[in-house]
C-alpha cells in the first residue's frame, strides 16, 4: 500500500472523528423545564420578563444580578448572573443564557443580549460572562 494512501486514510479517519466530536458541541436550545430535569449546562433563548423585578445592587454585591426570563414555551424563571449588570439590559429584545439550574434559580454563566441599535437598523449583541 502506498504511504500517501495510508496517510489519507488516517486523516479522513481523524477528520470524521473530529467533526463528530465538534458537532456534539452544537446543542439545541432547550427550555427551563428540560434544564430543571437534566440539571446540566444548557443554552436557553428567551425574553426578559420586563414586568418582573431586576435586582442589581452593587453596594451589596457587584457580582450579583438577578432577573426573570420567559423561555419559548412561556415558562418564567428567575436567573442569576454572577457578574455586573450588562449595559442596555432593559432594552434587550432577545436573551440567550447559558448555565444551569441550581435549587430554585438558574445560574447563568453568560448572557448574550440582542438589542436594537440606535445608530443603525442593525442589531448589536452584548455579551457578558460571569
Amino acid at each position: 500500500m502506498k504511504l500517501s494512501f495510508l496517510i489519507a486514510l488516517v486523516f479522513i479517519g481523524i477528520s470524521i472523528f473530529l467533526l463528530i466530536n465538534a458537532s456534539s458541541d452544537l446543542t439545541s436550545y432547550t427550555t427551563f423545564e428540560q434544564a430543571r430535569t437534566s440539571k446540566k449546562e444548557v443554552k436557553i433563548v428567551g425574553q426578559l420578563a420586563k414586568d418582573k423585578d431586576m435586582v442589581y445592587n452593587p453596594e451589596i454585591d457587584p457580582n450579583h444580578f438577578s432577573f426573570y426570563v420567559i423561555d419559548k414555551k412561556g415558562d418564567t424563571q428567575k436567573v442569576i448572573l454572577k457578574a455586573a449588570k450588562p449595559q442596555d439590559f432593559e432594552l434587550s429584545e432577545q436573551i440567550v443564557i447559558t448555565g444551569k439550574i441550581n435549587g430554585d434559580d438558574f445560574i447563568a454563566k453568560d448572557v448574550l443580549l440582542k438589542c436594537p441599535s440606535k445608530y443603525k437598523d442593525e442589531e448589536v449583541y452584548i455579551k457578558s460572562e460571569s
Binding site: 458541541d25 446543542t27 439545541s28 436550545y29 449546562e41 444548557v42 443554552k43 440567550v96 447559558t98 454563566k109
Partner: peptide, 9 residues
Amino acid sequence: EYHRSAPVN
C-alpha cells in the same frame, strides 16, 4: 426544532 445552537462555551 432541529435547529442547533452555537456551542455552550
